[in-house]
Amino acid sequence: MIPNEVLVKSLTEVGTTVLYVLIGTAILEAVLYLVLMRWLKYRYALPFMLLAPAIVGLATLTIYPLLWELRLSFTNMSLRAFKDPQFIGLTNYVRVFTEPVLKQTYFFPLLGRTVLWTLINVMFHVIGGMVLALLLNRPMRGKGIYRMFLIIPWAVPQVIAVLAWRGEFHYEFGFINIILRQLGMTPVQWLSDPTANFLAMCITNIWLGIPFMMVILLGGLQSIAGDYYEAAEIDGANGWQKFWMVTVPLMRPVTTPVIILGTVWTFNNFNIPFFINQNELESSDILVTGLFRAAFQYNRYGFSAAFAFVIFGILLAYSIFYLKTTGGLKGATE
């Protein structure tokens, strides 16, 4: 059972936090009310009062840390120089590209591996999700039950799913190698062989990610009116042509944002490489786990801050490029 000290301790911890938040918000709103509403009679006083708590929260926990990290990236802060870091200009940024970012791995091989990881995963997510959505998008018996079972990998808490997969990649007792042996094949060293470990990461992430794609794509397929297909049939289109000429173009408003999201999520995926590999093989790190390692295993804080901004720059460039070419953001800020 739960010891009393634990009960009380976490209750007080959380309780005081909520209390601080309430008091802080009340003071903030009172000040804003007096200044904006009463004193300045500002036209937009109400929206800003409504936004104020979120603005303060985001400013202290997102903007301020980011600016602080930017400053950090120009210093040599590490565990050795924790108290009085020196300003060293752009040295860290140069180092990201010229020195190993981990023990042996350089930046560009790491970037290449991350791109490969993202491509493989997003491709299988989209193809797998699309195949399952197409199979389910027809009147048939048992559709709801299939959907429920297929959604399960998404419903399991991710940490549990990934840790369980890690167990199943065990050389002797994991079910994958047991099945391989029963089929008369040689079992694979999933946890110690670099290529196999990378493959293990991909298998886990593909398994986890397909349900989300399937559900979103199925929603899109169901919104396509049957008339388009009838018109195509009258024109003599076969199933393959209907898919490429009707389904794919009409699905674009659904597929574009979901591919951007999927790419960013996969690129930034921390849990899967981290838990499958358990911080052992450098050859299985992608950029974000490499970043975590540089900061918390090698304690090179200044360097990892610069590294973080390089990664962020890549993501930002990708998102802007994709949004520009597809016009995905049009109307979103109306």
Partner: peptide
């Protein structure tokens, strides 16, 4: 929207030290 592409590991470093 932009905050959504920030990797979690990127925020961990400054938040931890702060």
């Amino acid at each position: 929207l932009t905050t959504q592409i920030i990797p979690a590991a990127m925020m961990i470093v400054p938040i931890y030290i702060l």
